[in-house]
Design a protein around this nucleic acid. Structure first.
Length: 548
RNA sequence: GCGCCCGUAGCUCAGCUGGAUAGAGCGCGGCCCUCCGGAGGCCGAGGCCAGAGGUUCGAAUCCUCUCGGGCGCGCCA
């Protein structure tokens, strides 16, 4: 602010010292040792102590940045702790939509940040490939398949109606011909009416699922099920990869069930005395551990619940020895946190090891107009459409630009625009501009002498230059703070600030001057700017174009 | 009804483990070198930080209440 470093200790201690803050500050200043790196100490305002650093000490950061390159800014704050970051984890029942996009951009940026801060990061996607929703998908695929085979189907109102389901049904027909064909009359015989016919859509679809399983038998059902799962999961994987989001592991919920992990988790809860029977179901006494009420883990029909899988999943995470477990969830799941923490506690683990970060939904706009979305009718904007419309860089930038735990308005028109209204290009342009200047070197017949630049840094006496150096030197602390507070948007704020200072400098001074020492010093400075912009953008998963 | 989150410039948002004159982008009104890329820069107008109390030397920041908005309260996932 007012000094290179500021200190408020005099005000904080004024009361217990029974002195007024400025007097106390003076006493402290008088007692300070002399240090060559500090040129001046001042008392200001209500009692702040401001320290001014020697400029040559400040300039050293340029040499550090250029020497360390991509390593500059990395810290060891994480001390090699193992952190698992689980994010997106959308049900594989359809393509990712824009809501998942925010979790993807945020989770991926956060994971990169944590890694840069010295944590050992494990990125994971939890695949909900078990449960009723997947059965509904399998049934939907099969019904579309029957349509392709020529059967007349009244498609259930609660089924997955998206086009992609038709495609999967058609593929199934291509690969297996009529192997799974059954007459429509047989499929629907005795099934309770669907909602449009005055029935209950849930009863209707559940009965259909039972019928599909019966008619296809276990093996046939598995084929249809896998056809749907694999196509959709591959699509999600490709989609995320194109968005710059990759994982160390895709963790299957089904695997938890088939390996007996769910049963084992329930046994452990049983042994610990947290399970009881009521109304034919098995309940977990989560209310004893801070939850609002107890939760069912085994349904009356003998099926375990999603929550039971999640208990097993978190037990598995604990067993894998992660020091920190980070779950990134949609904000609509916030009520779910206490029961998961309760489960961890019941399993004998410290619930503090789990950190749940909530991502609020983004509301889409095209200019003034709100984009309506509805999952049930299959009318939603997919992440892929978003990327096609605005580009991956703009999408990531916009998603991460705001605090993740706050609602955001996402203006597609603005994100897609290639004008100065769009903040994405602002930062990239600064990077490209430095590249452009460096290209100009040759054209102007200058040759590079990096050593001369580093030896001439004290020539950088313009106010633009000293403040740019100050901003560059802040990068490591910004990075570390953004990581430890799980707030990538702090990094974006910083990069915008750095880009702004660079653009201002660019407009105020010529870099390619005839004075060799000054020119090289300036090139060293803007080279450092380029490096820091590049390091930051890379962590955010945004490209660094050399020209635009 | 109960619980969680949020109300900061015309708009979108930073700032929130208390600190100096509350910031940025867009929009709006002026302006910018025959010179490295004008996707840039400079200047200006624009605020009772939703409202009311409280704690404190000091509150946008912490506490309480009111008003306004979002979300959650399944043997769904």
């Amino acid at each position: 602010m007012h000094g290179d470093f500021a200190c408020n200790i005099a005000m904080a201690l004024a009361k217990s010292a029974k002195l007024n803050p400025r007097e106390l500050a003076q006493t402290i200043v008088n007692a300070l040792p002399i240090d060559a790196a500090i040129t001046k100490v001042e008392i200001a305002g209500p009692g702040f102590i401001n320290f001014f650093a020697d400029s040559s000490a400040q300039f050293q950061v340029i040499s550090h940045i250029l020497a360390q390159g991509a390593q500059f800014g990395l810290s060891t704050a994480g001390a090699g702790q193992n952190v698992q970051v689980e994010f997106v984890s959308a049900n594989p029942t359809g393509p990712l939509h824009v809501g998942h996009g925010r979790g993807a951009a945020y989770g991926s940026a956060l994971a990169n940040l944590l890694q840069a801060a010295g944590f050992n990061v494990h990125r994971e996607y939890y695949v909900n490939d078990a449960g009723r929703q997947m059965d509904i998908l399998a049934a939907s695929v099969w019904l579309r398949y029957l349509e392709v085979c020529g059967e007349a189907i009244a498609f259930p109102s609660n089924g997955y109606r998206g086009e992609y389901v038709r495609d999967i049904g058609a593929d199934l027909q291509q690969q297996h011909g009529t192997a799974f064909l059954k007459p429509a009359a047989e499929v629907f015989a005795g099934i309770p009416a669907d909602e449009p016919q005055g029935g209950d859509k849930e009863d209707h679809i559940d009965a259909l699922i039972e019928r599909v399983k019966l008619l296809l038998a276990a093996e046939g059902y598995e084929t249809v099920f896998q056809a749907g799962l694999q196509v959709i999961l591959d699509d999600i994987r490709d989609d995320l990869a194109e968005f710059g989001v990759t994982y160390q592991e895709w963790f299957s919920e089904r695997r938890l069930m088939t390996t007996g992990a769910v049963a084992e988790a329930l046994e452990r809860l049983q042994t610990a005395g947290y399970l009881y029977m009521k109304d034919g179901a098995t309940w977990f006494a989560s209310s004893r551990l801070g939850d609002e009420k107890d939760r069912v883990v085994v349904r009356e029909n003998g099926q375990t619940t999603y929550f039971a899988s999640d208990i097993a999943y978190h037990m598995n995470k604990l067993d894998r020895g992660f020091d920190q477990i980070i779950n990134i969830w949609g904000a609509d799941h916030h009520g779910y946190i206490p029961r998961v923490k309760a489960a961890m506690q019941a399993l004998g683990a410290d619930p503090e090891r789990l950190k749940v970060l909530l991502v609020q939904f983004a509301v889409l706009y095209r200019g003034e107009e709100k984009v309506q979305m509805s999952t049930r009718s299959g009318e939603f904007v997919t992440l892929r459409q978003l990327r096609n419309e605005v580009g991956g860089d703009a999408a990531r930038f916009f998603y991460v630009m705001r605090r993740s735990d706050q609602h955001m308005d996402f203006d597609l028109k603005l994100a897609a625009s290639k004008t100065n209204e769009n903040p994405v290009y602002y930062v990239q342009y600064a990077y490209a501009r430095v590249c452009s200047v460096l290209r100009q070197l040759d054209e102007k017949g200058f040759s590079r002498d990096a050593a001369l630049g580093l030896a001439s840094l004290e020539r950088l006496q313009e106010s633009h230059e000293t403040s740019l150096v100050e901003t560059l030197s802040r990068y490591p602390e910004v990075l570390e703070k953004a990581a430890l507070q799980y707030e990538p948007h702090q990094l974006i704020q910083y990069l915008r600030e750095l880009a702004n200072e660079f653009h201002t400098y660019y407009n105020a001074h010529q870099f390619l001057v005839d004075d060799n020492a000054l020119r090289e010093a300036r090139l060293a400075l803007i080279g450092a700017v380029k490096q820091v912009l590049g390091n930051g953008l890379k962590l955010l998963g945004i490209h660094t174009p050399e020209s635009m």
